[in-house]
């Protein structure tokens, strides 16, 4: 147990952060260079004004017609994304651990709020899972990877809650929490979760094409 803890708290944690930051940077730079070579128009048409205009409409709940057609999915998605980012980044225990390790600290949210947010994330994951299985237009497109990614996202939140509330076996849950969280961070640049880094770019590009070239809205 101790050995696993040391690995999870030490080298694995460092590796996860390095893979997240380095991997994201690597993917972005590589795609950027490839775009320069093969899709130079991307740079020519990219426009700050129309890019941000599109991002704005897609980052506001119900800002696009597609979102308005699916209110449940829209609410679940926005809650999920906000909670899945805010809860772990501003959880007091995480802030403290980072402060203790590297003397870097930022604001934190009350534990109760983080608790509620984790529940929201888990509930949203269940919603996504049911939708992926039951809705033909989603299940048709789904492969084992999509289910794996969903499980990977849910795991740290389930085990985090488990560990926080000290349910039976919470020591094991704590270790799994650390390991799954690290796996999640490390896999962001290399799986479909890479939409985290590419979304702003592809959306801004489509916004630029629609706005600057086509004089039209894309939401």
């Amino acid at each position: 147990m101790h050995t696993l803890y040391y690995l999870a708290a030490g080298p694995f944690a460092i590796a996860a952060f390095v893979l997240l930051a380095g991997g994201s940077l690597f993917r972005l730079v590589r795609m950027g260079l490839l775009a320069r070579k093969k899709d130079p128009a991307v740079f020519d048409y990219m426009s700050a004004r129309y890019g941000f205009r599109s991002l704005f409409h897609w980052l506001v709940p119900f800002g696009s017609r597609g979102m308005r057609l699916h209110p449940a999915l829209t609410i679940a998605s926005f809650l999920f994304h906000v909670c899945a980012i805010v809860a772990p980044v501003f959880l007091y225990a995480h802030v403290l651990l980072i402060d203790e390790s590297w003397n870097i600290a930022w604001v934190h949210i009350p534990d109760g709020a983080a608790d509620a947010m984790s529940l929201v994330v888990i509930a949203a994951c269940v919603f996504f899972l049911v939708r992926r299985m039951k809705s033909p237009e989603v299940s048709y497109l789904s492969t084992w990877r999509d289910y794996a990614v969903l499980a990977l996202v849910a795991a740290p939140f389930v085990t985090g809650l488990w560990s926080f509330h000290q349910f039976p076996g919470f020591r094991y849950a704590g270790i799994i929490h650390m390991l799954s969280g690290e796996l999640l961070l490390a896999s962001i640049p290399f799986t479909r979760l890479s939409h985290m880094i590419f979304f702003p770019i592809t959306r801004a590009y489509m916004g630029s094409e629609f706005g600057a070239v086509r004089n039209a809205r894309d939401w």
Partner: peptide, 23 residues
């Protein structure tokens, strides 16, 4: 808090003995 955590957990980590997780 940092002093306590450093003292307790730090020693436990060093000695690979004793509690290390929050709970």
């Amino acid at each position: 808090i940092k002093a306590y955590h450093g003292m307790c957990r730090g020693c436990h980590e060093e000695r690979k003995a004793g509690p290390v997780q929050c709970g």
